[in-house]
């Protein structure tokens, strides 16, 4: 149901843009107003979410330790999986954010007869990391539309990405790989009954938005050509705040439409994991809570419990019978207080 709904949303988006630009000619609305609004939503929304998280304290150090703690000198510890210092935490986070360390650990459990078998299962890691890095590269590549002169490094990325010189204009590797990765991420949600069971519309929708974004981009580059000079004049206008919507094919506006939808959807969805991953207390803290006294929760009070003296009063008889010593200090203190 979720997948159908998401698909309909995406189709509706294409239709709306098509009608809006192709038929009604509302280039200003779809080329300027909506993208600006979407970008603003993205920026403000994400900052708002971040502040929302930041306002909540982290009362306990609930590190998930995936390696040996620091203890005795001669015990080899795992600095990356059980970080003791903040520097090691940074390394752990870098590994997590840039290499998807935890996902790399993934296993697949299978019940074969009476035995549970575990095997390494890195496809999800591969799909995820391929997708994320391609997305980032594509994003960076697009910087050529927002800069003049285009920085050498952007051009270099462009060259590397089109290294194989397939077709004309050259096919970007990232375009091909991101399509494959997206397809994998999508198909596994449909094909694996467990994933199908847990997947919601909000899992399919961003996938479809990105699909739409990528496909419209590829179509524009290789099939339905648009005048790229006009496009760049427009994008440069956007960042200089006097945009003139280009008179180019609807495909461009569909591309922009998907981008706007994605940006606007970002802060309200699971996509906030982009920033949230940095704030996960099981990963971003040092496993040194026995060595360092960390700041307790703002609401922390010394816990109220039955003190020894209260307890001794209760079990006085039993203590005496068992020959256990009574603490005279209890009575001294009492005397003082009274």
């Amino acid at each position: 149901m979720g997948v159908v709904f998401s698909f309909l949303v995406v189709m509706a988006l294409v239709l709306v843009v098509y009608l809006g630009v192709g038929v009604a000619g509302l280039r200003g609305l779809f080329g300027v107003v909506i993208p600006y609004a979407a970008f603003l939503t993205f920026l403000v929304g994400m900052v708002y979410r971040l502040i929302g998280w930041a306002k909540v304290p982290v009362p306990f150090r609930i590190v998930t330790t995936c390696g040996q703690q620091k203890s005795l000198r001669w015990v080899k510890r795992s600095r990356l999986e059980s970080p003791y210092t903040n520097f090691e935490v940074v390394l752990r986070m870098l590994l997590e954010v840039f290499a998807f360390r935890s996902l790399f650990r993934n296993l697949k459990a299978e019940l074969k007869g009476p035995n549970l078998i575990y095997g390494s299962y890195k496809w999800l890691w591969l799909g995820a990391i391929a997708f994320h890095y391609c997305f980032l590269t594509i994003l960076i590549r697009h910087f050529r539309f927002f800069s003049y002169p285009v920085p050498k490094v952007i051009q270099l990325i462009d060259q590397i990405d089109s290294f194989f010189h397939i077709g004309l204009p050259h096919l970007y590797m990232t375009d091909a790989v991101i399509l494959a990765a997206l397809t994998f991420l999508f198909v596994r949600r449909l094909a694996d009954p467990r994933l199908r069971y847990i997947s919601l519309a909000s899992d399919y929708l961003p996938l479809f938005f990105i699909y739409g974004l990528v496909i419209s981009g590829i179509l524009m580059r290789h099939f339905f050509k648009v005048d790229v000079v006009q496009v760049k004049q427009f994008t440069m206008g956007l960042v200089h705040f006097h945009p003139v919507p280009p008179k180019v094919g609807v495909i461009f506006y569909i591309h922009i439409g998907f981008l706007s939808a994605l940006m606007a959807y970002f802060p309200f969805s699971k996509l906030v994991h982009m920033l949230g991953v940095f704030l996960s207390p099981t990963r971003n803290l040092a496993n040194n809570s026995r060595a360092v006294r960390h700041k307790p929760a703002p609401w922390w009070k010394k816990p109220k419990f039955k003190t020894y003296c209260e307890w001794q009063e209760m079990f006085k008889e039993a203590l005496e019978q068992a020959g256990l010593p009574l603490d005279e200090d209890c009575y001294k203190d009492k005397g003082k207080k009274q």
């Binding site: 998280w53 909540v56 982290v58 609930i62 995820a128 847990i198 699971k270 994991h273 207390p281 099981t282």
Partner: peptide, 17 residues
């Protein structure tokens, strides 16, 4: 009160790992 709870409620992508 608990950032863990808030963040965990927000960022799950249901990847199924």
């Amino acid at each position: 009160k608990y950032r863990s709870f808030k963040v965990f409620m927000d960022i799950c992508v249901r990847c199924g790992a």
